[in-house]
Design a protein around this nucleic acid. Sequence first.
DNA 1: GCGGAGGCTAACCTCGGTGTCGGGTTCGAG
DNA 2: CTCGAACCCGACACCGAGGTTAGCCTCCGC
Lengths: 126, 126
Amino acid sequence: MDGMRIGELARRTGVSERSLRYYEQQGLLVAQRTPGGHREYPATAVDRVVHIQELFAAGLRSRTINKILPCMRDCDGGPSETATPLLVEELTAERDRIDRMISDLLRSREVLDEVIAGASGAAAAA
Amino acid sequence: MDGMRIGELARRTGVSERSLRYYEQQGLLVAQRTPGGHREYPATAVDRVVHIQELFAAGLRSRTINKILPCMRDCDGGPSETATPLLVEELTAERDRIDRMISDLLRSREVLDEVIAGASGAAAAA
DNA sequence: GCGGAGGCTAACCTCGGTGTCGGGTTCGAG
DNA sequence: CTCGAACCCGACACCGAGGTTAGCCTCCGC
């Protein structure tokens, strides 16, 4: 129920051990250490890692996640820090970046569709 | 009117010499060589580079562009190769990949919006 | 033929998350 | 106590378009 080591956390979250160590290196995840130096995670770490994964999946960089995490409630059970307007601004900028990527990709798809249509037409004509 | 070297092509297209050499390395652009080894481009290269740029701007990778280019008419004045069904299939796969990226990003934006909403709410509550 | 502008190649760096490898250490069951 | 599994850390590879540097060579006008 309580402590687990990195292997089990990896198994439970589906995240590789490598990534978990990376998260720690980036300050996203903290771990107690056994006297021998092995990482020891509390049960709440599972949820935290899941949160981190969601944010990574959202295309955010570790630096950004680092700022967001302390503001998320029910992330670690701890009291959520107050979100500064600056943070909100940064997150909004981040969302705009994603918006731009989406419209770029939509345009990509259009171009590709045109090419496909042209290619199909050529094939049909030949 | 006819031949030009890499510097002029770069100037006319606004693409760096480095990129032009990269395009050649990727098989997107061919160049004659002078006896001394300098690249010699025909006037039509300008249009071709512009096409390449459009496709890059559309977010396509060089590998994809490499497949598309020979099928585009009025690209180089040459006869457009007949699009094989295989190519159409590959392009369609590429479009599906882009579609997946788009839906991933849409979900990402949702997640981010939730975080922003939460953060704003926390700030408002504080 | 000389000099400067322009071109050539090869090679390293960027960014960021993660796979992978290697060599050393620790844990825990038997 | 011993052995194997699990863990530690550091470091390199990767992807992709292209910036940048270094050292050498070519082109062309004078």
